[in-house]
Design a binder for these strands. Structure first.
Lengths: 338, 338
DNA sequence: GACTGGCACTTGACCCAGGGGAGTGCCAAC
DNA sequence: GTTGGCACTCCCCTGGGTCAAGTGCCAGTC
């Protein structure tokens, strides 16, 4: 028995099942793919594939459907890249150009990704801890309030208002501004935070209260976990495609995308490559039958955060993978411009 | 036949149907409410209520369910206010205190509202056009880039980066800063935008390119429709409660909450009072069986934006209405502090 | 005139059996 | 290794029959 053909059969089963959503039998398989052998032969291959755990039958007299292991094999060895159509490329481009700020980029990319893949799209906001400080501004407001603005290399702008106990002198502020700049410019945020902490003692004791208040607020902003966890979700309407059984198929996903923590886990570590996690590989037991396609994105060569889609395991992997990496590429480029 | 009792019957039907999700018959009605009459009498009342269009039967031999008109009557005349429990009050309070910025306030309130009502919660970000300018900052960045920061009375901070053709002098910038401040401080954003436009001609012709670039960007920021349309949605998992028929009950809502424009329409105009829109009153044909409870919220006495919930018409109106107005109150207070 | 008990009627929900069809596994033959 | 044939399995659909809930109506009572 030829090993090659057996893999061809697996590929055909995955493709057909993804297309029709129905168990695929030996007869329809030979009809739709020119395999050059009879249904009986295919059946032999099928039992072999089933023995190895790549496919399974919902019930005795039904066709076969791929198992998670089958999908994995498909993704790893059988899928051929499916380049985006020019129309799709153009869609991404027109969607993302015209974004005015980082918020906008994220919102738009989540929309376009959901639309391209017909799945639920997830985009993590550019990570703070992985960016560097591009600019810090300290602005006196009315009274003893001070506005702090941090601009990061990823174009993200964070601001905080600090209520001070006394109104600081202009001189102190400009001094502070200069020293903060010297200490943090170009540094990664976590390091910048450390540098700032060291800085407090270099100031006159009288100024300490003001300096401390400002510097610690900045530090907090730099290491603020919450903003590192920000996530945008889109395409919830595509949950329809998860199947008809609401309770087992749709509800868990709906619940997962409400929980930022779960979502972050799903997206996974921002490794640079495209990652596909199928079924149990998602690390979430309640998400049987769902798969996550994710990748890191970043300005330049630096990974800033992750984005991806979550959909049913019976998804069009080549198309989804192409869309995810294309959007990631464009988002990275778009952020570099901001 | 007593009109009073007939309304009592309607109230009982609404309450039972909301509680059980099943058509309610004359027998169970007299059992669960001490109406003091026999099922047969109730039946007579029921045909009257049905003739007037307040209730209907799914099929000939089933119990009655309220029509949209019935719910409306219930909300308008029959519902008794159901004050929040102390635990619920505390939940709102602890959820909203500790919010670091406006973004955070909105995110948290959408969560708490969804949790309290077990419905889909919608919170519109504080409107820009209805706020006034609290502070504007113009900061020179590296090269010929300039950072513009706008702080509004609602605590919202918008920022834009402008790429200029030439590097402006410090003197020009501080002049600009002063004049912009004078022209816009305390003004509503649309008016501030007009004032800025008038300002350009008061500058030296040589400075015009720089001034124009900065001022028009500010203007755009003030009148940016997109940010006026920003909305947070939460509690999508509660869609479960909309019923079991995915296509007719859940999908339309899912689609609606993906579309900002539709959402904004749903929330409706930011009138000051609590508004309940039932079925067709939502103005959206595909949302049969859903109702929207919304209200304006604001700092001080000024309406800034709207928030609310969308749920099935068979919802617990008194509880939902109480939760929505309570959250609105707290959000308003919380924004005033920021 | 309002209320009540009784009763026939309607109708969806549930259960069960039987036929049809798609697909399989196995086997003997090539 | 491949193929056609064939018996078998099991889901799906349909139809009929029962059941329970609830109604509408009517005659009688207060």
């Amino acid at each position: 028995m030829s090993d090659d053909r057996r893999l061809d059969v697996l590929r055909a089963i995955v493709e057909d099942y993804v297309a029709t959503q129905e168990p695929v039998g030996s007869r329809s398989l030979v009809e739709r793919h020119h395999l050059g052998v009879s249904p009986a032969t295919i059946r032999n291959d099928m039992v072999a594939l089933e023995d190895e755990g790549y496919i399974t039958q919902p019930h005795t007299s039904a066709g076969r459907i791929p198992t998670d292991k089958g999908y994995r094999m498909f993704v790893d060895r059988l899928a051929t890249v499916k380049p985006l159509s020019p129309a799709e490329r153009r869609a991404i481009e027109t969607f993302l150009t015209g974004a005015v700020d980082v918020d906008d980029v994220v919102q738009r990319s989540v929309r376009v990704l959901a639309q391209l893949t017909n799945q639920v799209a997830i985009v993590q906001y550019p990570s703070l801890t992985r960016s560097t400080v591009r600019h810090i501004e300290v602005v006196a407001l009315e009274g003893s309030r001070v506005l702090l603005v941090v601009i990061t290399s990823s174009g993200r702008v964070e601001q905080r208002i600090v209520e001070l106990v006394e109104t600081p002198s202009d001189q102190l502020l400009s001094d502070l501004r200069a020293r903060i700049g010297r200490a943090t410019l170009g540094e990664r945020l976590p390091e910048a935070s450390l540098r700032l902490a060291d800085m407090i003692e270099t100031f006159d004791v009288n100024d300490r209260p003001v300096v401390t208040a400002i510097v610690t607020t900045l530090s907090q902003t730099f290491t603020n976990e919450r903003s590192d966890e920000r996530i945008a979700v889109g395409g919830a309407a595509n949950l329809v495609r998860f199947g008809s059984d609401f309770d087992t198929a749709i509800r868990p996903v709906l619940e997962a995308i409400e929980e930022q923590v779960v979502l972050l886990k799903l997206l996974g570590e921002a490794t640079s490559g495209l990652t596909v996690r199928i079924g149990a590989e998602t690390g979430n037991d309640s998400l049987v039958g769902t798969a996550v396609v994710s990748t890191a994105y970043g300005a330049d060569d630096q990974a800033l955060a992750t984005l991806g889609t979550v959909g049913p395991t019976r998804m069009d992997y080549p198309a989804t993978m192409a869309a995810v990496s294309a959007v990631a590429r464009y988002v990275g480029r778009s952020l570099a411009d901001t």
